[in-house]
């Protein structure tokens, strides 16, 4: 017997809807759970003091600092490389074999798991280049990790700058470089910033690549050669080694807040960028 199409339609809608609901609820529950358990543990003292007894007591100040500094360092390194790649792909060449190689490399790099970045950073920056477990090792490793994100968002942003601007600039006797830095980049800036924020978000949440390159020192970092511990690493160690569930929840809540805030910023900027373009 054939089931009438009307009924399959209804069944499909119910099943699909249920699946969607499960997905959304699960994801929302995770956030809600972390915040519910973690937020009561957060206090000014928690944010502003150093941890004691490996994090069993005290606060998370050094890890906050690490979470700010390391992603910033990574962005400072990745931004010129990523934007430069995007400019080359959009302004200086057509699709050919070279661009295909560049794109393939970028796509593959985007799919490399973070533990591989950790291994690579450990052997290359920490050991071979002798940088040790340090902010600079961690920053360089994270920079490579977020490079594909920066390249993709920058390329999209640059492509969305109207072609007419380039023609006008060219007709006013600007060279390619002058057109790029006087017209193209300023107009692509909001889109590029979206990529920057996404990259920062990814760096904040990263653990595996950081723990083997930046180390896990709980001291306040004073130079690029010092080891730092980010909140993600701190949280991982607290939870994995069962040091303190309360502190782990609190750290997780701060971490989730930070990531949500950064991603929301990216989303807001992207929307403003799209709105501005379509006007």
């Amino acid at each position: 017997m054939r089931i009438p199409p009307k009924i399959t339609q209804a069944l499909a809608v119910i099943l699909l809807g249920a699946a969607t609901l499960i997905t959304v609820i699960t994801l929302v529950l995770i956030i809600a759970f972390v915040l519910k358990r973690g937020v009561p543990e957060i206090s000014w003292e928690f944010l502003s003091t150093k941890p004691r007894e490996m994090g069993k007591a005290g606060g998370i100040l050094p890890t906050l600092l690490g979470t700010v500094l390391l992603p910033l360092l990574a962005i400072l390194i990745a931004l010129p490389m990523g934007v430069g790649t995007a400019v080359y792909l959009t302004e200086y060449t057509r699709e050919n074999r070279v661009t295909r190689i560049i794109r393939f490399g970028t796509d593959c790099l985007a799919g490399i798991p973070s533990i591989i970045f950790g291994l690579f950073g450990y052997i290359f920056f920490v050991t071979i280049l002798g940088m040790g477990w340090s902010m600079i090792s961690g920053g360089l490793t994270l920079a490579i990790m977020i490079l594909p994100t920066i390249i993709r968002t920058s390329e999209e942003a640059i492509r969305s700058v109207p072609q007419a601007y380039r023609e006008v600039s060219c007709s006013l006797a600007a060279t390619s470089w002058e057109t790029v830095y006087k017209v193209v980049l300023p107009n692509a800036l909001p889109g590029i910033m979206t990529g920057v924020v996404l990259g920062i978000g990814r760096s904040i949440g990263e653990t595996a690549a950081v723990i083997f390159t930046a180390g896990s020192s709980l001291m306040m970092p004073s130079s690029l050669n010092d080891s730092v511990r980010t909140m993600s690493v701190h949280f991982y160690l607290l939870a994995r080694e069962g040091i303190s569930d309360e502190k782990a929840y609190a750290t997780a809540a701060v971490l989730v807040f930070a990531v949500l805030l950064v991603n929301l910023a990216a989303y807001w900027m992207m929307n403003r960028f799209i709105a501005k373009r379509s006007r």
């Binding site: 430069g84 490399g105 690579f120 052997i123």
Partner: peptide
């Protein structure tokens, strides 16, 4: 202008070069 072009070309290979470096050292 020429300098910028070559710098951009060099930089454009940063991701691919990183991938190769990673592969090489692993």
């Amino acid at each position: 202008d020429k300098l910028a072009r070559y710098i951009f070309l060099a930089v454009a290979f940063s991701a691919t070069a990183s991938l190769l470096l990673i592969a090489l050292f692993i």
